[in-house]
């Protein structure tokens, strides 16, 4: 038996001498079992992440079906072009992450580093666009809280003096019911709910991007110094799985937040 294990090990470490060196840890039968354990372990973490974001998506579905009209109008205040740019950046970062993993598989350290660097740059680009968006929302009184005031075109005009109570008055049955509403009579609490969801979901996503940058930089450092742990490509693959997951969340957030308000070119 031990002979066979040895053969299997040897058979799969040696065929690609130029590729990444994978050592089989003593608790695993062979490299296949070891790789599968890592990948499945990472996926089980991602399942918890799916449920974590799932709660926010659930809330979104419930309130969007409850207040479809307000959500459509409030979404129109988001800059879909900034969202488009960010989607573009994230998809590009996913491509370079995939190439980083591929180069790690082939044991090409410098190319791996280059691809990880591009991924980190994209991540910072994403956060940069997000910062501009957040500060615009702040300036337009669209951050939920006592200063929240939603007006149709989100302009620079100051919120009315009685903004502290206005959202309560606006919640009267006549305006919160159905029917076409004239401009400016959007129930403030409903609009606030949309922006609350916007900040909660993109904020949580942004935190994931920041964690992603830390992971990418950490493993990039280990690759740079040729640390033993980074000679195997599996850790980079796992960082990649995390990064692509963050990308997938954004793929769903983008249309749900930015594109439901009939954007104009």
């Amino acid at each position: 038996m031990s002979v066979q294990v040895k053969q299997r090990r040897r058979g799969h470490v040696e065929p690609r001498p130029e590729g990444a060196v994978q050592e089989v840890a003593h608790q695993f039968e062979d490299i296949g079992q070891q790789n599968e354990s890592y990948i499945v372990g990472m996926w089980s973490f991602l399942v918890t992440e799916i449920m974590f974001f799932g709660g926010i998506f659930m809330t979104y579905i419930v309130y969007r079906t409850k207040y479809p009209q307000t959500f459509t109008i409030a979404s129109g205040e988001l800059d879909w072009k900034a969202g488009f740019l960010n989607t573009l950046i994230l998809l590009t970062s996913s491509l370079s992450m995939a190439f980083a993993v591929r180069n790690a598989q082939l044991g090409k350290r410098w190319r791996t580093l280059l691809c990880l660097g591009i991924t980190i740059l994209c991540a910072f680009g994403f956060l940069g666009v997000k910062t501009v968006e957040y500060s615009t929302k702040w300036a337009h009184h669209l951050v939920p809280g006592p200063n929240f005031h939603f007006s149709r075109h989100g302009g620079e005009q100051a919120a009315p003096a009685d903004r502290g109570t206005s959202f309560v008055e606006d919640a009267s049955p006549e305006t919160s019911g159905g029917g076409a509403k004239p401009e400016g009579e959007i129930p403030q609490h409903e609009a606030q709910l949309f922006f609350g969801l916007y900040f909660a979901s993109t904020g949580l996503h942004g935190v994931h991007v920041i964690i992603g940058i830390i992971l990418l930089a950490y493993w990039g450092g280990l690759v740079q110094f040729n640390a033993r742990a980074a000679r195997d490509f599996i850790p980079i693959e796992m960082v990649g799985l995390y990064w692509h997951f963050v990308d997938i969340v954004w793929i769903f957030l983008y249309p749900l937040l930015y594109l439901i308000g009939s954007p104009k070119l």
């Binding site: 996926w43 996913s94 993993v101």
Partner: peptide
């Protein structure tokens, strides 16, 4: 990108589980 296409069956099950739930 996440290589599930070439993954083992166990990987497929785990990848699908979260979305199904």
């Amino acid at each position: 990108f996440m290589h599930v296409k070439d993954g083992t069956r166990l990987t497929w099950i785990w990848a699908a589980a979260g979305f199904v739930w």
